[in-house]
Design a protein around this nucleic acid. Structure first.
Lengths: 94, 94
DNA sequence: TTTATATATTGAAATATTTCAATGTATTAA
DNA sequence: TTAATACATTGAAATATTTCAATATATAAA
């Protein structure tokens, strides 16, 4: 799969996911935290109710920007660098 | 001004501007057309009423992604590559 | 098994965005 | 000066997104 292999509707979805300050803060915090974050951490960070944070995380997951996994009893989310790189490459063509 | 000199709220604004299929098509068409486009052209391309196209173009202008200029009696819009590059660089830090 | 912890889903209200008819502005051709 | 062309603005309806209380699910500790 080539880096530039991303269609307009994928670019739209990722742009939408990135077009919210809360979601950008989640991604920023993940970066500071070795690419990982817990949902509860994000709740504290954003001063948002837990379902709101869950909603934002879902948008990021649906855009393919992060993925969920588990360590012991805790859920984690991690940035998907490949998708972000593909997105950045796709924008080059504009 | 360094490429990575872009704050979170600018990234949010640009992402929002890119998060719409009509606006992405406008940018795509500009690319095909040596970086330029007329509003009327965009109306035909998108099958949208003229005020809607004007609205979308405004969003792109406000995000700094395109700028308006004139040739003779015609208005033109052109992609601002510098801003797009800065945006792509800012995303690298996520 | 019961309780606690972490996250997801649902549904509805609040808010933001998109769309277009009507109208305004600015420029140019006739 | 009048008419035509190109784009912008306003205001209101349609649509989409965000937010959270309530509730559900899933796992692990007690």
């Amino acid at each position: 799969m080539y880096l530039y292999d991303m269609n307009l509707s994928q670019v739209e979805k990722i742009s939408k996911a990135l077009g919210d300050s809360h979601r950008l803060k989640i991604l920023q915090q993940m970066q500071k935290n070795k690419g990982k974050l817990e949902c509860t951490e994000a709740c504290n960070l954003l001063s948002l109710a837990q379902p709101s944070v869950s909603h934002h995380i879902k948008k990021l997951v649906e855009a393919g920007l992060i993925h969920q996994y588990k360590i012991g009893r805790h859920y984690h989310y991690a940035l998907n660098h490949e998708v972000l790189d593909m997105y950045r490459e796709a924008l080059k063509q504009l």
